[in-house]
Protein backbone atom coordinates (compact mmCIF):
# COMPACT_ATOMS: atom_id res chain seq x y z
CA UNK A 1 0.00 0.00 0.00
CA UNK A 2 2.78 2.40 0.97
CA UNK A 3 4.66 1.67 -2.24
CA UNK A 4 1.67 2.50 -4.43
CA UNK A 5 0.94 5.67 -2.47
CA UNK A 6 4.58 6.72 -2.84
CA UNK A 7 4.49 6.24 -6.60
CA UNK A 8 1.19 8.10 -7.00
CA UNK A 9 2.57 10.98 -4.96
CA UNK A 10 5.79 11.12 -6.99
CA UNK A 11 3.77 11.13 -10.21
CA UNK A 12 1.54 13.97 -8.99
CA UNK A 13 4.52 16.09 -7.94
CA UNK A 14 6.27 15.46 -11.25
CA UNK A 15 3.20 16.61 -13.17
CA UNK A 16 3.05 19.69 -10.91
CA UNK A 17 6.65 20.56 -11.75
CA UNK A 18 5.84 20.15 -15.46
CA UNK A 19 2.92 22.58 -15.07
CA UNK A 20 5.21 25.04 -13.28
CA UNK A 21 7.73 24.71 -16.09
CA UNK A 22 4.96 25.56 -18.54
CA UNK A 23 4.22 28.74 -16.58
CA UNK A 24 7.93 29.64 -16.46
CA UNK A 25 8.12 29.34 -20.25
CA UNK A 26 4.81 31.07 -21.07
CA UNK A 27 4.21 33.45 -18.14
CA UNK A 28 3.54 36.84 -19.71
CA UNK A 29 5.24 38.95 -17.05
CA UNK A 30 8.31 38.61 -14.85
CA UNK A 31 6.38 38.15 -11.56
CA UNK A 32 4.56 35.20 -13.15
CA UNK A 33 7.87 33.52 -13.88
CA UNK A 34 9.20 34.16 -10.40
CA UNK A 35 6.02 32.78 -8.87
CA UNK A 36 6.37 29.66 -11.00
CA UNK A 37 10.00 29.20 -9.94
CA UNK A 38 8.97 29.69 -6.32
CA UNK A 39 6.35 26.96 -6.61
CA UNK A 40 8.85 24.76 -8.39
CA UNK A 41 11.34 24.80 -5.54
CA UNK A 42 8.57 24.06 -3.05
CA UNK A 43 7.54 21.06 -5.15
CA UNK A 44 11.13 19.90 -5.53
CA UNK A 45 11.48 19.85 -1.72
CA UNK A 46 8.60 17.39 -1.63
CA UNK A 47 10.21 15.27 -4.37
CA UNK A 48 13.48 15.10 -2.43
CA UNK A 49 11.68 14.08 0.75
CA UNK A 50 9.79 11.38 -1.18
CA UNK A 51 13.10 10.16 -2.59
CA UNK A 52 14.40 9.97 0.97
CA UNK A 53 11.43 7.81 1.99
CA UNK A 54 12.00 5.58 -1.02
CA UNK A 55 15.68 5.06 -0.17
CA UNK A 56 14.87 4.77 3.54
CA UNK A 57 17.38 7.40 4.59
CA UNK A 58 17.11 10.65 6.52
CA UNK A 59 20.12 12.32 4.91
CA UNK A 60 17.94 14.13 2.42
CA UNK A 61 16.22 16.23 5.09
CA UNK A 62 19.26 18.48 5.22
CA UNK A 63 19.21 18.92 1.44
CA UNK A 64 15.51 19.80 1.62
CA UNK A 65 16.17 22.35 4.37
CA UNK A 66 18.94 23.96 2.33
CA UNK A 67 16.74 24.18 -0.76
CA UNK A 68 13.95 25.74 1.32
CA UNK A 69 16.28 28.43 2.67
CA UNK A 70 18.04 29.22 -0.61
CA UNK A 71 14.76 29.26 -2.52
CA UNK A 72 13.17 31.72 -0.10
CA UNK A 73 16.20 34.01 -0.08
CA UNK A 74 16.45 34.04 -3.88
CA UNK A 75 12.73 34.77 -4.29
CA UNK A 76 13.03 37.68 -1.88
CA UNK A 77 16.14 38.97 -3.63
CA UNK A 78 14.58 38.85 -7.09
CA UNK A 79 11.37 40.51 -5.85
CA UNK A 80 13.42 43.22 -4.20
CA UNK A 81 15.20 43.74 -7.50
CA UNK A 82 11.88 44.07 -9.34
CA UNK A 83 10.55 46.51 -6.77
CA UNK A 84 13.56 48.79 -6.43
CA UNK A 85 15.87 48.05 -9.33
CA UNK A 86 18.50 47.26 -6.74
CA UNK A 87 19.01 44.52 -4.17
CA UNK A 88 21.18 46.26 -1.59
CA UNK A 89 20.49 49.95 -1.27
Amino acid sequence: MLDNALWISVALFTVSIMLNLYRVAVGPALPDRILALDTMYVNSIALIVLFGIWLNTKTYFEAALLIAMLGFISTVAVCKYLLRGDIIE
Binding site: A5, L6, I8, L12, F13, S16, R23, A46
Partner: peptide, 22 residues
Protein backbone atom coordinates in the same frame (compact mmCIF):
# COMPACT_ATOMS: atom_id res chain seq x y z
CA UNK B 1 -2.86 3.90 6.03
CA UNK B 2 -2.31 7.30 7.65
CA UNK B 3 1.04 7.75 5.89
CA UNK B 4 -0.42 6.71 2.53
CA UNK B 5 -3.31 9.15 3.05
CA UNK B 6 -0.97 12.04 3.80
CA UNK B 7 1.25 11.20 0.81
CA UNK B 8 -1.66 11.15 -1.63
CA UNK B 9 -3.37 14.19 -0.09
CA UNK B 10 -0.10 16.12 -0.38
CA UNK B 11 0.32 15.12 -4.00
CA UNK B 12 -3.25 16.07 -4.86
CA UNK B 13 -3.00 19.47 -3.13
CA UNK B 14 0.31 20.31 -4.82
CA UNK B 15 -1.15 19.26 -8.17
CA UNK B 16 -4.20 21.48 -7.67
CA UNK B 17 -1.97 24.41 -6.76
CA UNK B 18 0.18 24.01 -9.86
CA UNK B 19 -2.90 23.43 -11.98
CA UNK B 20 -4.30 26.71 -10.73
CA UNK B 21 -0.99 28.38 -11.53
CA UNK B 22 -1.21 27.13 -15.11
Amino acid sequence: GVIAFFLIAGGVFAFIGSFGLA
